[in-house]
Design a protein around this nucleic acid. Structure first.
Lengths: 345, 345
DNA sequence: TAAGTGGGTGGAATCGATTCCAGAAAGGGG
DNA sequence: CCCCTTTCTGGAATCGATTCCACCCACTTA
């Protein structure tokens, strides 16, 4: 049953010409029907409607897009979908855009900045209406610059130096300021920050926030900064070292929740009590952070809010209304849970 | 300074005709150059190459696809990106496909089967080369059937009754059989299964596996089955009830890890000890499951393996070689962690 | 030298839609 | 009764690529 190949070519896909022929009108008329330029009740409209459902016709969006120069699609480039933060963001963005009939490409750079130019180019060649770009680097490349002259490119989360484009990100500086202030208020004097890659602007912003908080205490407290990565492994590896380390800080701040969870795990395994012996604080507030025990104190990025803003900006830009490039910096929120407490002494 | 609108239309995007004119050859020749049908060293090739880089030309993939009837894109439809299982799957699939120059649309049905026909249709209209479909229901709809006649549709994870299409899923029956057998071997006699929606084939398969394991014991053990959802809330709500429940089962099996985590949380909060008082077992093995404490015993779906298989099937189908529709059922793996132990008595 | 072969080239058709424009039909007013 | 306006319709151009086919040129071979 079903013959050898029930796939391609089995049922020829109807085109607008087929519909026109079947309905006994011109392609033009069919097109007008499709785009609502034809009186619904008219005689021709009836015939077209019938032909369409008889042939199960659906317009070829490729052809339509080619002509109309808009594809109703955008690309989202993220470093890595296995970091739960990005799917959560993606989910928010996709939900908003889907409501406006925009479909979403997703690509992972795998935290390798060298892949990014090619990815940007490929999506651009596909004529996407916009690109949402969570960059894995802070240097603008010529490809990015060129593309941004033709379609809106929203830089998310990261900041790209000297690149005057739409940017939406959380206030990293404020986030770490809040976190540090909170720990200092608890009485901690010896902090450590497991930072992200040092060449990133976000990393630098965060460190500034940290410093500001320290300066307010006028040198009573100190922080050690360790550059690293954004993975659980980064946290775990550092934690393994820490165990052997002579002078123990009393609180560990992490570049993101994944790093914090790496530390969390290693500490649990090694019997280092959180928060009794050492306090632990993350960044992002991915949903896992509320699941582990003790639950993780962290700095929340308002994901859904950001997702909606992103979608809105893109939609505005898509309508060709002039939207001046702006940088939107949204405030983070400190979520206090169980992994932080006053220092043991 | 960039002026009023540095967006659309600022820099006209070069087309193949522009390149042809600039190089002093015909469009045909440029096209041949692009597709490698032109001697690299030839005089014309040089001129074309120069024109391309001068104009920063990139072919319009829409136009190319329209002509060649292949878009090098596929769509992935998942119920919900906030369930970590799907991003993990998506990540594996995207990685494999990207290596072959195929780009990926992603869409969420939000667990609402009524959205699915529209989504399928939209992607089909975009002429995707294939659809990877994690269905939220087990009934085939006419739209799905029609689309599958033209392009490959891979049904993932779920089974659609009476629909003879490519299917790739884990052996649900075996998975629950293994899990139940393991618990029975530990000495449990009173089980409960927090199942997914009862109209899904997967749910029924799982229950069969469960029954098989029980039957092997010849009625010494019993299981209660509760139909529910796939969310943490579903688990949490059941757990709240459980606390008041008179006859306590000694082990709880869950439809997925998310449900198990909901139970996990509620139990922790209510002071019910896992696995001392009650054993807990999930399904999927999302990465969170290894993070909570106690860590969760679960049935692992071999995601990366499945991702690769999916991509492979799609690529084969894309080459129009005839690939007979097949159902691939991959074995799951029981991952024993800390949330299971012999019953307390 | 003429005929045959082969590779390189460009004109034109094509993919499936939208849209400009001109012509036909219908309706209204003088 | 005729003319002008308005509405409806379809032919043809267009979007940006690929590809068929005919042509030209140079080179080999009888």
């Amino acid at each position: 049953m079903g013959g050898i190949d029930s796939r391609k070519g089995a049922r020829p896909i109807a085109t607008i010409s087929d519909v026109a022929k079947q309905a006994g009108v011109s392609r033009t008329t069919v097109s007008r029907y499709l785009n609502g330029h034809l009186e619904q009740s008219s005689d021709n409209a009836q015939k077209v409607a019938q032909a369409i459902s008889a042939l199960k016709y659906r317009p070829n969006l490729l052809a339509r897009s080619l002509r109309s120069a808009t594809t109703h699609s955008v690309a989202v480039i993220v470093p890595d979908l296995t970091n739960p933060f990005y799917p959560e963001l993606l989910s928010a963005v996709e939900t908003c855009l889907a409501q406006h009939g925009i479909q979403v490409f997703v690509g992972q750079s795998r935290n390798d900045p060298r892949r990014e130019p090619d990815m940007l180019r490929d999506y651009f060649s596909r004529q996407v209406d916009g690109i949402i770009y969570v960059a894995a680097k802070s240097q603008p490349d010529p490809v990015l610059r060129q593309i941004a002259e033709s379609i809106p490119v929203l830089i998310l989360d990261e900041e790209i130096v000297g690149f005057e484009q739409e940017t939406i990100r959380v206030d990293h500086e404020l986030g770490l300021y809040q976190a540090a202030k909170y720990l200092l208020d608890l009485g901690h004097r010896q902090l450590i920050y497991l930072a992200g890659p040092s060449h990133l602007v976000t990393t630098q912003l965060r460190i500034q926030g940290l410093q500001t908080a320290l300066n307010e205490r006028g040198g009573q407290a100190a922080v050690e900064i360790v550059a690293g990565g954004y993975s659980m492994d980064a946290g775990r590896m550092w934690a393994e070292q820490f165990v052997l380390h002579p002078h123990h800080p009393t609180a560990v701040l992490c570049a993101n929740d994944l790093v914090a969870l790496g530390v969390h795990r290693a500490f649990s395994k090694r019997g280092i009590a959180i928060p009794k012996t050492v306090s632990l604080l993350g960044f992002d507030d991915i949903f896992v952070s509320a699941m582990v025990s003790p639950t993780l104190t962290t700095v929340r990025q308002p994901l859904h809010h950001m997702g909606r803003m992103i979608a809105d900006r893109l939609l505005q830009a898509g309508q060709r209304r002039h939207v001046p490039a702006s940088r939107m910096v949204v405030p983070p929120e400190l979520i206090v849970r169980e992994s932080t407490a006053p220092p043991p002494w």
